[in-house]
Design a protein around this nucleic acid. Structure first.
Lengths: 207, 207, 207, 207
DNA sequence: ACTTAACCGAGACGGTACGTCGCGTCTTTTT
DNA sequence: AAAAAGACGCGACGTACCGTCTCGGTTAAGT
């Protein structure tokens, strides 16, 4: 995460508090409605309470700064226990819901999605490092579910996956992340997607 | 849709082509990645091939201009035939999917969502005039489905509705609107949400 | 003297008052002690009471601006009547003395001399257009003086010329331009250089 | 000349070479065209090859530094032998011419003159310690010349003095100090000022 | 036909924000 | 304790863009 290794042969040390103050400032400003292109290093410096110089010294471009901001909100992945498909999916969705409930992270990712065209490199990294692993985890659970006979094998796994995560992603996109109970919401979504809404579809028995 | 009535006592007429050229310019620029705050009337004028004056003469602020842009992409609502819950939902989703497949409209709404905080008035109108009626239509279909005994009555209708529309909204938010077959996708989503993905949940017989 | 001809096909006209206000500002600031390198277009704009934009629009670089300032202080040359060498020299020196007595012009030229290395193009123009013609005029008078038998022919005309103008140039350089009576000072210098200070050198009879 | 006595209680000694390196740097930079206000301690440090700290440790302000630079170029005064007015004046002028021929000293004094308003204290010291004594010496020689009957008594001694030194001062001001033969130039000036340029003014016999 | 009034493009204008640069100070490591 | 390296806050600079204002030229309605 350090921006520049640099030869440390002398000179004053960089204030480590400034690093986090700047990253915090970005998150706060984006959460307050700023766009990634509209956000200026000047405004960031003011919000962080440091001089413009201290920002430019650490990051040459907004791209590089945002990259480090993304690293910051990249929470550790959850690892489902493998007890059962329903529970495993609930664990994955709960972890996603928790991130969605984090107002600042949510705002940052929403902004990044909206301006993907302007920050292709950034969006690429976001996809590779954050989206892809979690998508793979969910696919893995679904595959195991099919093997166990818990998931209808004739369905497109991608579609199931999309239906599961979309409600949370749509909330993130619309900014309606308040009053989101991760545990409860994750469970509701999984149950509904697994059991279906049609009256004829009797809900499977659950422990 | 006309912005100013004005006294028409004489003088040169406004070029009607300019109106649509400007609105087109907004849609093109937003589709190309511009944000609503970042987009300037100057850039719009250049893209539209008219002078700044011609833009300012028609709309005093970006807010008012965007309002008219929103009107433009407000396609007529679909009206489900009422043949059956499954088909009615499919009709509604197909209409939504078609709008999502429209790259420019999709980009405009994505931008509006991302910057809702900056354009509260605009976002409010968008919600009232576009989202609310369609949401009400879906709720109505679901209510009728419960009465008909086609939808499990103990479920939260809001959750079902959310699950149905979220896949399309999430696609709109992420910009992954290419290669979207509205008819097919709408049908797939409705089937999966109604029938469920669990192996035990036998798919209801369909005509 | 006009900076840019420009195609005048439309658009608002430049405020002609701003042109002179800016040039006046330069002269005032330089007279107040500013150096040509130290003087910024920002400071000039503030002093002139116009926006930075209005300065940059007219002149891209300080060089071009200073060039026009030089034109402004380039007073019309004097033309000696040819009545006699002594009187002709006095006329030339009085004209020079008048320019030296002009505080602002004097300061400008002093600054230009001091920073000739930084503004070679400017210094070159100054030399060609202001210094050279006047130097040539004086050489011409001296040549005629030799022909008339009024100037000792064995002397270096360049040295005589240098002795005549140097007192005024030195005053200009040192900034001691107050209380300078052009008429009287010019006459005194010419008399002394022509007649000499040595006791043996009897002053030539004058009308 | 040492700036601060300081308690020498231990620790590393100041590098004596740095002192002269810094002063040399100032002279070189000014000779290269830098102004006194425009010259920064940073640029001086870089030119001298020392750290900024090493400059600031020795001199708190540019004023104090320039003062020591002035001391450096303050060559010892000449003392005319008193053999005769013509020779005495030539000695004084030759000394002045030698200083003028020193490119770096000349540039420094030229810069100081141009920016006298910005450095009043510095300019005052320069006047008191360098100009005044030499002016007094010349006045003294001229007074003795009048007493000896070698200088016309009705002339203003100040004017004679001004005419004698101005050619050299003007050269210093204009920077045209190359190819200046101090001995020859001084002699030429004295002869011309004493004997006059007019044909009627017979040159006094010289040894 | 002539006046009038609005539109249109072009561009000057004041204001604001940006990213850069340089300054003088402060801090840390090395000599 | 001096020296070198470099981070830091501050401020100025030149640029770019924005929204307004002001031109000459054009077009259509009303006399």
């Amino acid at each position: 995460m350090e921006t520049q290794p640099r030869d440390r042969r002398g000179g004053r040390q960089r204030d480590p508090a400034a690093d986090s103050a700047i990253i915090d400032a970005v998150l706060d400003l984006v959460a307050a409605g700023a766009t990634l292109t509209g956000l200026s290093l000047v405004a960031i410096a003011k919000q962080a309470g440091v001089s413009r110089n201290s920002v430019y010294r650490r990051w040459k471009t907004k791209d590089e700064l945002y990259l480090d901001v993304l690293e910051t909100i990249n929470a550790p992945r959850s690892s489902p226990a493998g007890a059962g498909t329903r529970d495993d999916l609930a664990v994955l969705l709960r972890t996603l819901a928790e991130r969605v409930a984090d107002t600042r992270a949510s705002a940052m990712l929403r902004a990044l999605n909206a301006e993907a065209a302007t920050f292709p490199r950034l969006h690429g990294r976001y996809f590779e490092e954050i989206v892809a692993p979690r998508r793979e985890a969910m696919d893995s659970v679904l595959r195991r579910g099919v093997e166990r006979g818990e998931i209808r094998p004739e369905l497109d796994p991608g579609l199931i996956s999309e239906l599961l995560v979309s409600p949370l992603l749509a909330r993130m996109a619309s900014g309606a992340t308040d009053r989101l109970d991760p545990e409860r919401t994750a469970r509701q979504i999984v149950d509904l997607v697994l059991d279906g809404a049609a009256a004829g579809a009797a809900p499977s028995p659950r422990p």
